[in-house]
Design a binder for these strands. Structure first.
Lengths: 352, 352
DNA sequence: CGAGCTTGTGCAAATGTTTGCACATCTTAA
DNA sequence: TTAAGATGTGCAAACATTTGCACAAGCTCG
């Protein structure tokens, strides 16, 4: 029963000999082809089971041109959002019978060889969350008609993209701050030129201008904890002291909180802080961050659907999906006097 | 120049026609076989370049029985240690021309189909960090002579394992606490039956008993932030109030710190807290955790070396590697009056 | 009773590589 | 001059599948 590796490992031919039928019959029987009689089918399946037969994925991929592999280009692991996304992705890909190859992680630009491996392994598709050189990857994918979907990235060229509705989330947080009476609001933006940061920022700016408020100051935090920390220090030391900070992602928000506290400021009594993403640490009691939760599972599911559709129909037109996030009200920000009304209003307009 | 996917994509045969030589010559030329004349070789390589030829990994794997793939079974993403390890692993595997397939993530037991995919894709090896059902996976790997190395796990059966020298690290932290004058020391252990937790605990217990101190109390925190938080609360509310807490990993230590602070305790003035791992968040200003850094890069490098050796010689005997970690002194724990001497002593005995 | 359909099976080609072996040509040494 | 070696190349098998096509039987219907 225990099969061996390499030579001696049972193949479809081993089974065909044992069952006294041809290899093609075995192949068909194993995948439940209806042309095969019930009797033959069960016999073959039973023998395969006894031998511990496992189909060779490479041989199969070679002829079918489908590998069951999808490539993943992952963002910075030091932003917990990406690991959390990886988690969801592995689970859901597995459930669909797909395996995930992690081709790249971090902020460094994609090596050409990384992109090429998509082709060498004949991957069925790829999901990209990393920022740099995504356009090059997109071009390769398009040329080779390899399904690709960007997550949390602006749709480049004409490839698919799915993200949280960042603008809506930004608006929701902005309106929440304004309703709570904040007028001196600082924005800590992320890595420049990322749609995620841009859209969230545009969202809050829109929300503020609705009440004729302008952001007090704008800093960049590079989407890292350290960047948030530096921004927090700068805000306290600067001439314009805000009464609320909107960090465009949670990891920076945590840095902001720590910096503000180092200066003896209490949160939210002295200053409110909100983030975006709802990473796990946002709910830690020390931070208890008001934020917008990215609907990771829904986003991943959607991304896989898009990939799936394009595996079947490579020329399907590109689609963009924006899924609204969920507002998480915690204690890092002052609350509006009439919270229920504020929330109701946001909900009615589909912002959360 | 832009190659297409599927039919029409240049193969070794396309090149052979263009170059007027046989496919075997092309194959040899491309991999720099010395039997091929310089003239032929450069001609072939040039044509391949022009056509944008990329070898088909599946075809190659089919015949060579080497796939260039290694499987990774990853622990809980909510413990940042594992994502940080993934980062290192992807970088270093890529540098060796290997690709990483993430087969599983999280604490749930390994599905049989997950283990089987190791065989279907003819992976060259696998690295396992997850706890549950590792023994089943180890058995499969052994049966099929598939190189496997466990990371941060006890060596089961006779497979390879590499970990931080957890016992040494535990000792170092224990001695540090004792030298700082602590006598009422609480231990927050991790998931039961994990060697990581057990070894670290054994280490600190040994260190304490060296000074005739016994742990004041022992709790379990399940290796999660929430578990650490609960343990922290329990410590304050319990009858025996410690003056120092040793959490066997950082993620729990963060929870402990947050819980203690909720009760108004100052760290380290009222109570010292140390962890283990040196995850990124351990250095956040809010925590600034004294801890032992796992030498992730060295561990990963070692694991890949072990894998490599067993790809070449599948019957090589199992090896276990323990790499000493580095003590990171920060501000979450009181310091010994004579810190340099303490450190020197630890270093002399190879504990850090 | 035979034409045509259904049902079950097998043959063989195709997928894109690698590699053992054979072979042809050229050099070198006796 | 010839045997032996070196050098460069090609043939064909092997890797483990899938799948179009053909074919044989058994059935139904006119």
């Amino acid at each position: 029963m225990p099969t061996r590796h390499g030579p001696g490992r049972p193949t479809i031919e081993t089974i065909s000999e044992a069952a006294g039928v041809s290899v093609s019959t075995v192949s068909r029987a194993l995948k439940g082809n209806r042309r095969i009689s019930e009797r033959t089918r069960t016999a073959v399946v039973e023998i395969a089971r006894q031998l511990g037969y496992l189909p060779n994925a490479h041989a199969r991929s070679l002829v079918t041109r489908r590998s069951g592999l999808i490539g993943f280009v992952m963002g910075d692991v030091y932003n917990p959002f990406y690991p959390e996304m990886l988690d969801s992705l592995v689970q859901r890909a597995t459930a669909r019978g797909l395996r995930l190859m992690v081709l790249h992680v971090g902020r460094k630009p994609l090596a050409m060889s990384t992109i090429e491996s998509l082709l060498q392994y004949q991957m069925d598709g790829c999901i990209i969350t990393s920022a740099e050189l995504t356009s090059k990857a997109a071009e390769v994918c398009r040329t080779h008609r390899l399904p690709m979907v960007a997550m949390n990235r602006v749709p480049r060229l004409n490839n698919c993209a799915v993200s949280c509705d960042n603008a809506a989330g930004g608006r929701a947080l902005g309106e929440l701050l304004v309703a709570a009476g904040h007028r001196k609001i600082a924005i800590v933006a992320g890595a420049p030129n990322t749609s995620t940061s841009g859209d969230r920022e545009a969202g809050i700016v829109a929300a503020l201008s609705r009440s004729k408020v302008k952001p007090l100051v704008r800093l960049e935090g590079g989407s890292t904890y350290e960047g948030g920390l530096a921004a927090g220090h700068a805000l306290v030391q600067g001439s314009k002291r805000p009464d609320a900070v909107f960090a465009i992602n949670d990891i920076m928000a945590l840095g902001v909180v720590d910096a503000l506290r180092e200066h003896g400021l209490r949160i939210p009594e002295d200053i409110s802080v909100v983030g975006f993403d709802d990473i796990h640490a946002a709910s830690w009691s020390n931070y208890d961050l008001t934020t917008v939760a990215q609907p990771i599972d829904a986003m991943v599911e959607r991304a896989l659907d898009l990939l799936d559709a394009r595996m079947k129909e490579p020329d399907a037109p590109a689609e963009n999906a924006f899924i609204v996030g969920a507002l998480r009200i915690r204690t890092s920000a002052r609350l509006p006097v009439d919270l229920p009304t504020t929330i109701e209003s946001l909900r009615e307009r589909g912002l959360i």
